[in-house]
Design a protein around this nucleic acid. Structure first.
Length: 594
RNA sequence: GGUUCCGUAGCUCAGUUGGAUAGAGCAUCUCCCUUCUAAGGAGAGGGUCGUACGUUCGAGUCGUACCGGAGCCA
C-alpha cells in the first residue's frame, strides 16, 4: 500500500522474509507473508535497552502451530548477520534488533543533514484532494475557537503535501444571513451611522463590527418579550430583504462592512501564516444553490413534504434533509451541495475534506448522502473531519452571547507575556525587531501547539492563565531546544560536518536520540493519513526531550576528541533539521535564539 | 426517546490499529547553573484503565449491557 521509506526497517524485511521462508520450508508449511507485512509489524520495544526494533512472532507461531518463543529462536538461528545490525536477541516471543551507531547515523543523521530525508515521497496513492477549513462569519469576531479549526486545516494541508498528495486549500466564509442583518440593525438603530462613519478610519473596525453583533443579540434578547419585538422583527426582515435583493442602503452598508470583516480575517491568516488557494463565499453560492435545488425538484429527484422540498433519509436514521423551505429559500445543506458541485467541477478533485466542528456531524452526513443520491460519484470520498470545540472554564463560547476570547487578544497577551517573562533579560543585547519577531514566533508555537496537541475528538477548555504557562509539553519547549542547537552550532564551527564518523555516536543518549529520529517520516505519514496532527506534536516533543538528555549528558564543547565533537555536532544539526521541518508542518516557526 | 463521541494518576492528556513492566506534562517533595541557554536535566510519591460479563494464547485497545458526562436530531 504505502511505499517503504524507512531505511532501517527496510533493511530488516528481506533478511526476515528469507529466514521465515526457511523456517516454514523446514516445517513443510505454507508461508504467505510479504515484505510490506513484515515492515508494518516491526515495532519499537518498550525500552531501548531491549532493542531498537522488534518483530513479534505471534502470527507465524499460529501458522506453524508452535509456541512464539520457539519460532523466535528458530528465526534467529537462520538469520545470520545483517548489515548495520549490531545484535539480534530473542526475548520471549520477540526478536529484538539493535542497530550499530554507524547504521543509525547513516540512516538518519546523514539524510537529515543533506536534506534528502525531507524530499522523499512518502505515499504512492495521492488522489487530488481539497481541504476546506476556516469558515468564519463576517460581522462576528474571530475568537480562540476559530483557531483550532485554522490550525487543524493548515497542518493537514502541509502534512499531506509533505507526504506527496496534491492538495487544494479552500475557505468558505459566511458573509450573509441573519447575523449580518442583526449587526447592521443594531448599528442603524442603537449606535448611529455617524459613529459608523468614524469607524471607517479605525484599524480595528473588523473587531468593532463583531462587538456590534454581540451587542445586537443582547439587545434583541432583552426586548424579545416587550412591545418592541414586532418592530425589531419588521426591521430585521426589511434589512434581509434588501440584502437579498442586492440593492438599497443596507446592501451598500453590507458591502462596505463585509470588507472590514474580511480585513480582520486576512489579518488573522497573515499572522497564522495561512494562505488559501480558493475563497468560496456564501453570498456567491446562495442564489445558485436555490436554482440548483429547484432544478433537481423539477427533474423529480427531490420530494415534497409539508410544503418543504428535500430528500427523505429517515430509513437511514438521517431524518429529512430539507433543501427548500416552504417559502422557497434554501438552507445550509442546499449551499453545501452547490459548493460541493463547484469544488468537483472547478478542480476535478477526487477527494473532499471538510474541517468543521462536531456539531455539524449530522449535517455533513446528510449532505454527503444527498450528493450520492444526486449522482456525484465523489460523494463516497467526501470526509468530514470533525473536531470537538473549544470552550471556556464556565461553559461554551458564543459570539451571540458575547462571552468569547478574541483571537488577537490571546496573541497580544501571549506576546507580552513572552517579552516580560523571558525576553526582558536580552534587552541590552537584542534589537527591538528581534524581540518582536521572537516573541511572535514563540506565541505562534504556544498557541498552535496548544490547539493541535490534543486529539480532535476531545474538547479543549481554554484557560488564559494555563495557556500562558510555557513549560513542560508545549510549543516553546520544542522551539527552545531548537534555539539551543543553533546556539551551539554558531559557537563551535567544524569544517566538513557531513564527513563525521558515525561509529563514535555510541553513548546511550546518542543512540536513543537517533533511534527516535529515524521514525520521522513514518510518523508524518501516519499522522497525515489518519488526519492527526497531534501525532506530530507528540513526536516532536519526544524528540526535544531526547535531545535535552543528550545535551546534558554529552557535551559538545568538551568532547574528548575533535572527531567526537564533529559527530555530536552532526547529530545536533540533524535533530535541529528534523525539529524545524516537523514544526513547519504545524506552521510553527523556529527562532534562532530565545 | 433516537443517535454520535468521551470516561486512563489529584488536574490536563498520550497509549504505534489486540502484544513485553500502562506513560508524559502540571501540581507536591528531593537534588543539579565557576561546564555548549535552568523556557532545562536527574530522582520520589501518585493507577481496580467508569462497572460487569464476553471474545482468545493475550484486552486500556474488540463485542454486549449498564453507570456517568457532552453534542446533535425529534
Amino acid at each position: 500500500m504505502n511505499l517503504l521509506h524507512e531505511p532501517l526497517r527496510l533493511s530488516l524485511t528481506k533478511p526476515l522474509l528469507n529466514a521465515i521462508q526457511q523456517v516454514f520450508k523446514a516445517a513443510n508449511a505454507e508461508v504467505q507473508v510479504t515484505e510490506t507485512e513484515i515492515y508494518n509489524q516491526l515495532v519499537e520495544p518498550p525500552n531501548t535497552d531491549l532493542g531498537h526494533l522488534a518483530f513479534g512472532c505471534f502470527m507465524l507461531a499460529k501458522a506453524l502451530k508452535k509456541a512464539p518463543p520457539m519460532v523466535a529462536n528458530e528465526l534467529k538461528a537462520v538469520l545470520g548477520s545483517i548489515d548495520g545490525v549490531a545484535s539480534i536477541e530473542v526475548a520471549g516471543p520477540y526478536l529484538n534488533f539493535k542497530f550499530t551507531a554507524l547504521g543509525l547515523a547513516n540512516a538518519v543523521v546523514k539524510p537529515a543533514l543533506n536534506q534528502n530525508l525531507f524530499k522523499q515521497k512518502l505515499s504512492d496513492k495521492n488522489p487530488k484532494s481539497m481541504i476546506e477549513y476556516s469558515q468564519p462569519n463576517t460581522h462576528k469576531e474571530i475568537h480562540v475557537g476559530h483557531m483550532r479549526n485554522l490550525c487543524l486545516g493548515d497542518a493537514l494541508v502541509k502534512m499531506l503535501r509533505y507526504s506527496g498528495y496534491e492538495i487544494i486549500s479552500s475557505t468558505f466564509p459566511g458573509d450573509v444571513g441573519t447575523h449580518v442583518a442583526k449587526c447592521l440593525w443594531y448599528i442603524q438603530n442603537h449606535v448611529g451611522l455617524d459613529v459608523l462613519a468614524q469607524k471607517r478610519n479605525d484599524p480595528n473596525r473588523g473587531e468593532w463590527l463583531g462587538q456590534m453583533y454581540s451587542a445586537a443579540n443582547l439587545k434583541l434578547e432583552d426586548e424579545e418579550k416587550t412591545e418592541k419585538y414586532e418592530t425589531n422583527k419588521k426591521q430585521l426582515t426589511e434589512i434581509l430583504k434588501q440584502l437579498e435583493a442586492g440593492s438599497g442602503a443596507f446592501y451598500d452598508l453590507w458591502k462596505e462592512t463585509r470588507g472590514w470583516s474580511i480585513e480582520l480575517m486576512q489579518k488573522v491568516y497573515k499572522w497564522a501564516g495561512v494562505t488559501f488557494d480558493q475563497w468560496y463565499w456564501e453570498s456567491d453560492v446562495d442564489a445558485d444553490s436555490v436554482k440548483m435545488a429547484k432544478k433537481y425538484f423539477a427533474e423529480g429527484q427531490l420530494i415534497e413534504s409539508q410544503g418543504a422540498i428535500g430528500l427523505d433519509f429517515s430509513s437511514e436514521t438521517l431524518g429529512f434533509c430539507m433543501l427548500l423551505k416552504s417559502d422557497g429559500t434554501g438552507l445550509y445543506a442546499t449551499k453545501d451541495i452547490e459548493l460541493a458541485r463547484r469544488k468537483f467541477e472547478d478542480y476535478k478533485i477526487e477527494k473532499s475534506i471538510y474541517v468543521v466542528d462536531v456539531r455539524q456531524a449530522l449535517h455533513f452526513k446528510q449532505v454527503f448522502k444527498a450528493l450520492e443520491i444526486l449522482g456525484f460519484s465523489q460523494a463516497k470520498n467526501c470526509y468530514h473531519l470533525q473536531y470537538n470545540f473549544v470552550e471556556l472554564p464556565d461553559g461554551a463560547m458564543s459570539s451571540r452571547k458575547g462571552n468569547i476570547v478574541p483571537l488577537m487578544d490571546l496573541v497580544s497577551q501571549m506576546k507580552n507575556h513572552v517579552k516580560t517573562e523571558y525576553l526582558s533579560r536580552y534587552e541590552a543585547e537584542w534589537s527591538a525587531d528581534e524581540v518582536e519577531s521572537v516573541s511572535d514566533a514563540v506565541a505562534q508555537g504556544a498557541i498552535k501547539y496548544g490547539m493541535l496537541r490534543q486529539d480532535t475528538n476531545k474538547k479543549i477548555v481554554f484557560d488564559m492563565a494555563e495557556w500562558l504557562k510555557l513549560d513542560g509539553e508545549s510549543g516553546p519547549f520544542i522551539q527552545y531546544s531548537y534555539a539551543r542547537i543553533q546556539s551551539i552550532i554558531s559557537k563551535f564551527t567544524v569544517a566538513d560536518l557531513a564527513s563525521f564518523d558515525g561509529t563514535l555516536l555510541s553513548h546511550a543518549a546518542e543512540i536513543k536520540l537517533m533511534q527516535h529520529l529515524m521514525n520521522f517520516n513514518s510518523v508524518v505519514l501516519m499522522a497525515a493519513e489518519s488526519y492527526k496532527p497531534a501525532l506530530i506534536c507528540t513526536y516532536l516533543y519526544e524528540t526535544a526531550k531526547k535531545f535535552n538528555v543528550f545535551y546534558h549528558e554529552c557535551s559538545i564543547g568538551k568532547a574528548e576528541t575533535e572527531e567526537l565533537k564533529k559527530a555530536r555536532l552532526a547529530l545536533a544539526s540533524a535533530t535541529a533539521a528534523i525539529l524545524k521541518h516537523g514544526l513547519a508542518l504545524l506552521s510553527i516557526p523556529v527562532p534562532n535564539r530565545m
